[in-house]
């Protein structure tokens, strides 16, 4: 099975979204430095090609489960930048009215349910969604984006076995950014390439350059086609790198500077822009970047001015606790 790469128009849209995500992450970093954010924020700088490239061919009725590091997944799946930023800032206008915060964003209408801060929990979640899609006879698919750390959990093994056993329409998209929190993958995993594990489930698997959005797109599109046509699950291991530390509370000191420099030179935005430069004018690309930056600036300006939510006792509370 072979799918053609993304069209130039699709590549432009992927690049635009990647720039949006990067500007968003940078703006959050700056806001954090000024004390304008609350709680830890897990930026995905350097990983945009995975989250955006892998979700670019999905329909809004396809279902994505995400992680604590989901900003590229949110934007890739078509969520509105302003409402994402508003949720991250805990505002009433956010996708979850400020209740979720940046790790748990969900938009059921966009097929994103959702972010998850329990590492690994999105993997069985996507598997269960895939079972339901299969039972309903829908040709939609489930895609689970998860990390190399999450791949070490027991539920990852259990999910992959069940998905392969029942030929469920799910794509396991492993975002291998080399670290689980502060621990390097070499200290977490007995094998360097996690995709070798797919053989244990007789599940097709492939390794892709996670910093090349086109490579990620092609691998994901093939897997989506397989899942839609009843061919069952696929594991895609996208090799990438987390450029800005684990979170805004990361005290650092455990990442090798040379390693960071190596990956920075292969920044997914640089890779995508270089590809596009052969197809379209530089001025067009510059304009596109400026527009993306403006979208993010406007989103922050609006979200910062938005009202905070007001507390109300949810009916679920009163109903189950027998009153005060």
């Amino acid at each position: 099975m072979m799918t053609n790469g993304p069209s130039v128009d699709e590549q432009i849209e992927i690049y635009r979204k990647m720039v949006v995500v990067r500007r968003m992450e940078e703006a959050l970093g700056a806001l954090h430095k000024q004390g304008g954010t609350r709680g830890p924020i897990h930026r995905c700088d350097g990983q945009e090609a995975v989250g955006v490239g892998a979700t670019a061919m999905l329909r809004s009725s396809d279902q994505v489960t995400s992680t604590h590091r989901g900003h590229a997944h949110y934007i890739g799946k078509g969520l509105d930048v302003h409402r994402v930023v508003a949720e991250i800032l805990g505002k009433e206008t956010g996708y979850c009215r400020g209740r979720a915060g940046h790790m748990l964003v969900a938009s059921a209408a966009d097929g994103l349910v959702g972010g998850n801060a329990i590492v690994g929990a999105g993997i069985p979640a996507a598997t269960g969604i895939a079972l339901s899609l299969q039972l309903q006879g829908r040709d939609d698919v489930a895609m689970c984006l998860f990390g190399d750390g999450a791949a070490q959990t027991g539920i990852c093994h259990e999910s992959m076995n069940i998905a392969a056993l029942w030929k469920l329409p799910v794509i396991f998209l492993l975002e291998h950014n080399q670290y689980g929190l502060t621990v390097h993958h070499a200290a977490q995993s007995s094998v360097a390439d996690l995709s070798v594990r797919a053989a244990g489930y007789a599940m097709p698997a492939e390794i892709v350059d996670g910093n090349d959005s086109v490579a990620v797109y092609i691998a994901a599109a093939n897997a989506v086609e397989r899942a839609r046509s009843g061919g069952g699950p696929t594991l895609i291991e996208a090799k990438t790198y987390r450029l800005e530390g684990f979170s805004t509370s990361d005290m650092g000191g455990y990442q090798d500077e040379a390693e960071i420099a190596l990956w920075r030179a292969r920044d997914p935005l640089t890779v995508a822009r270089a590809r596009l430069a052969g197809e379209i004018d530089t001025e067009v690309l510059d304009g596109l970047e400026a527009d993306a930056a403006q979208v993010v600036d406007d989103a922050f300006a609006a979200a910062l001015a938005d009202p905070p939510p007001e507390f109300e006792l949810h009916p679920a509370s009163a109903a189950y606790s027998g009153g005060a």
């Binding site: 609350r38 009215r97 400020g98 915060g101 748990l104 905070p308 939510p309 949810h314 679920a316």
Partner: peptide, 16 residues
């Protein structure tokens, strides 16, 4: 705590 998940936003978290 009231019988609710702990919400993220500061005014909500303070309230519970």
């Amino acid at each position: 705590m009231p019988d609710l998940p702990i919400p993220y936003s500061e005014p909500l978290e303070r309230a519970v």
